[in-house]
Amino acid sequence: MRIPILKLHNYLLISIQIDLDDQSAIQFQEDLLNKIYKSGATGVVIDLTSVDIIDSFIAKVLGDVVTMSDLMGAKVVLTGIQPAVAMTLIELGIHMQDVQTALDLEQGLIKLRQELEG
């Protein structure tokens, strides 16, 4: 199952709406990096509103994708992490220290814009 990546000006928008298995997560990582390379996007919003579980593996893939995108010159913001997911991650001991977050897609875009222009 492939996750669609939408382009809007120089932003890429992704809404993850499936229960991520390991293979799809890695596929997504690859697809996103390729898309950044091809489109030259400078900002990425990954919306996790409909994701109801993130385990240590998915967290690692997401953390990696943020670092990798950064290397390629694209800032990533994760949005819409559910309270239950956030609590579970913290209890697992995963803090995602270097990852930018925002409440929703709108706030995420505002944050990206501030970062890229300010």
Binding site: I53, Q82, P83, A84, V85, M87, T88, E91
Partner: peptide, 8 residues
């Protein structure tokens, strides 16, 4: 929240 904990 507990459902998420258990599933994770």
């Amino acid at each position: 929240v507990d459902q998420a904990r258990i599933a994770t």
